[in-house]
């Protein structure tokens, strides 16, 4: 069986990046030229990050990210580009996710109500049975 490839996210092509120049372009001209970032930092002056990844789905196996491009554009306090760097999957780290969840205080509806809550549907195949 053949693998299925799927792309997610968006990274500006080298041609678009070429006409951005360090020290001159600001956040607005960057947004106009290459579009908004897929992710950004927490603070006001933090950088803009464009991420595009390519996934390989193969049969029953877990989908694997086979290629990821990250373009990081960092700005100084004045909002002018200080650095444009491009890096890939190898810089990423495999991080074990903590399984703890902050519980939301609202009690869900009881198990039984969930189980029988949505009874009432009567479908043709029960009536006729499939011979």
């Amino acid at each position: 069986c053949s693998p299925i490839y799927r792309n997610h996210g968006y990274v500006p092509t080298d041609r678009d990046l070429a006409d951005l120049s360090v020290g001159i372009d600001t956040r607005d001209t960057v947004a106009a030229a290459v579009g908004r970032p897929s992710a950004a930092g927490l603070l006001k002056e933090s950088g803009w990050y464009y991420v595009q990844s390519r996934w390989r789905h193969y049969g029953a196996f877990e989908p694997r990210e086979i290629d990821r491009q990250v373009v990081a554009i960092s700005f100084n306090d004045g909002g002018v580009i200080t650095n444009i760097e491009r890096f890939g999957l190898e810089e990423g780290r495999v991080v074990p996710l903590s399984r703890r969840v902050t519980d939301s205080n609202i009690a869900g509806i009881s198990f039984l109500r969930q189980l029988f809550g949505s009874v009432g549907n009567f479908t043709a195949d029960q009536l006729l049975g499939d011979d």
Binding site: L115, S118, V119, G120, N121, F122, T123, Q126
Partner: peptide, 8 residues
């Protein structure tokens, strides 16, 4: 939502 269960 529509009822999706049936009990007979």
């Amino acid at each position: 939502e529509a009822p999706t269960g049936s009990l007979s």
